[in-house]
């Protein structure tokens, strides 16, 4: 389904700020795989997602989705195949537009935008039903500006927008990191519900080891621009945080050093 081969990326090459962010990434994701991605700061997790989404061009290597080579497609063209939710709740939605307008924009992802009406009355009814699934009461506020919503509500809406047109791959970049623990849990539950309902192939970055183990059927760990741990199926189900840390130390030859992850690993 998704096939990343030998992707490399160096930021600011030839300068004092040179940073090798991706160091030969190879990853093969099957249809319906829900992969959690974990790693320390600067491990290259977000860079990998951004390469798939086309935010920055790759230095070398290729990215193929469902047989379509998207390596050199501009960001807006590959959006057709991808659903994305960002870390910052402000990034995923248009604050100054209504809830239904945001959904209507997402419903037209990958289609040519013409002079037809931006939102039909049929769509409105459909969105109302879809918003009920979130259980946040947004179905009563279709014409409210998104800027009035809380961070959690915005992330839930972004999630709905990302999956409204079933994407081939869903990219979640620490999409609960900016939320309080209770809201984060709720958004994660909604995530799992949507992903399992539509059997979406998903890449989810998280800094929470607990979540990384709890959700999905596969876990990869990154370090210095490489994928160093890849656990699937039964093995993944039985994984504990202690084992995970051990795996990391063995694979990387160093101790797991990320304050964010260490602090959050005991959080329930």
């Amino acid at each position: 389904m998704l096939k990343i081969s030998n992707v490399e990326k160096t930021f600011n090459p030839g300068t004092i700020n040179e940073k090798k962010a991706l160091n030969g990434i190879n990853l093969h994701i099957e249809k319906g795989d829900f992969v959690t991605v974990i790693g320390g700061n600067g491990a290259g997790k977000s860079t990998m997602l951004n390469m798939i989404a086309g935010v920055h061009p790759v230095d070398c290597g290729s990215i193929v989705i469902d047989g379509i080579d998207i390596t050199h497609l501009p960001e807006y063209k590959r959006a057709k195949y991808l659903g994305r939710v960002f870390q910052d709740p402000m990034t995923g939605t248009a604050a100054d537009m209504q809830i239904e307008e945001n959904l209507a924009l997402a419903a037209r992802r990958g289609k040519r935008r013409t002079l037809r009406t931006g939102i039909t009355s049929g769509e409105r009814a459909e969105y109302k039903e879809l918003l009920k699934i979130l259980g946040l009461g947004l179905e009563e506020r279709l014409t409210a500006k998104v800027g009035l919503l809380s961070g959690g509500q915005r992330q839930a809406l972004t999630l709905l927008m990302a999956t409204l047109k079933k994407p081939k791959l869903l990219l979640l970049d620490e999409h609960t990191a900016a939320l309080d623990p209770k809201t984060a849990k709720k958004v994660l539950e909604i995530t799992e519900e949507i992903v399992s309902k539509d059997k979406l192939a998903t890449l989810m970055i998280t800094h929470n080891m607990h979540d990384a183990i709890k959700y999905g059927n596969r876990l990869i760990m990154m370090h210095e621009g490489r994928i160093i741990v890849d656990v699937k199926g039964e093995e993944k189900k039985k994984l504990t945080i202690a084992q995970l840390l051990e795996l990391f130390e063995k694979a990387s030859g160093s101790e797991f050093a990320s304050d964010k992850v260490m602090l959050s690993k005991n959080r329930e």
Binding site: A79, L82, T91, G92, T114, R116, G118
Partner: peptide
């Protein structure tokens, strides 16, 4: 009328949020 069409909405979205627009397949 125009800013209510698909094309007009895309222009508005571009003005509000570039990242979101590109993620939704809008040629900003």
């Amino acid at each position: 009328w125009f800013f209510g069409t698909e094309m007009g909405c895309a222009i508005r979205a571009t003005g509000i949020n570039l990242n979101m627009s590109r993620a939704q397949g809008i040629n900003t």
